[in-house]
């Protein structure tokens, strides 16, 4: 994707439908407010945030981060394949990306089950309130992203996209990359930084 774009003359607008970029910017603005709120709320009780942050499993967060990065990479490969009119290959990459997304949901759900089993609730303390609401808000975006990717995979299978027309796949792809992008900030902020 990138090499194709960088080799070509610069274009005025980003890949995909411009409407999805407006939607993405709105989503990113909400997450930015969430992130800043977390950081400034932490100032009120740094010791408490650090104490409960230590209860989170960084290994699980690592798996989830690698899962989303890999999934994003698979979407890039799917787009590269359709640009070469390799429809079946493109569908396979999209299905692989969906599998990675499903893995993320399974791992994250297991993490929630563990925390709820330990008695963690939104009302437990400010750290857990941010942790649960931030990560669940992102979780919902992963679900939406998977629905979009599944629709793109189905349309690709049906022959709706080709080397000359694949705007729909680009649109779905950039949304999925946004989901990945948000997690790349969320991971260090909530799980690592102290």
């Amino acid at each position: 994707m990138s090499a194709t774009l960088t080799a070509a003359p610069p274009v005025r607008y980003p890949p995909g439908d411009l409407a999805i970029w407006i939607f993405i910017l709105a989503e990113l603005a909400v997450f930015a407010i969430f992130f800043a709120s977390y950081a400034f709320a932490r100032m009120g009780d740094v010791a408490m945030f650090n104490e409960y942050q230590a209860t989170l499993d960084k290994g699980v967060a690592l798996i989830n981060t690698l899962t989303l990065i890999t999934s994003s990479y698979f979407v890039v490969r799917a787009l590269a394949a359709i640009r070469e009119d390799q429809r079946k290959t493109s569908v396979r990459w999209l299905l692989a990306a969906l599998a990675m997304g499903a893995l993320f949901l399974v791992v994250k759900s297991a993490e929630y089950v563990h925390h709820f089993g330990e008695g963690v609730r939104l009302s437990s303390n400010t750290f857990y309130m941010f942790y649960l609401s931030l990560t669940f808000f992102h979780f919902l975006h992963v679900v939406l992203g998977m629905v979009i990717l599944a629709a793109v995979a189905l349309k690709t299978h049906q022959g709706a996209y080709s080397a000359s027309e694949h705007t729909g796949m680009e649109t779905g792809g950039v949304y999925w990359h946004m989901v990945d992008l948000v997690w790349l900030i969320l991971f260090p902020l909530v799980y690592v930084m102290r």
């Binding site: 960088t6 005025r12 980003p14």
Partner: peptide
Amino acid sequence: VLGLALIKGQLIGDFFMGLKGVRGPWRFV
């Protein structure tokens, strides 16, 4: 660590979202 995350985010924007090949304000969004 935050700086590394920002670099990773820019890599996603440039190379995965395809903004590297875009000129004008969208390039830096």
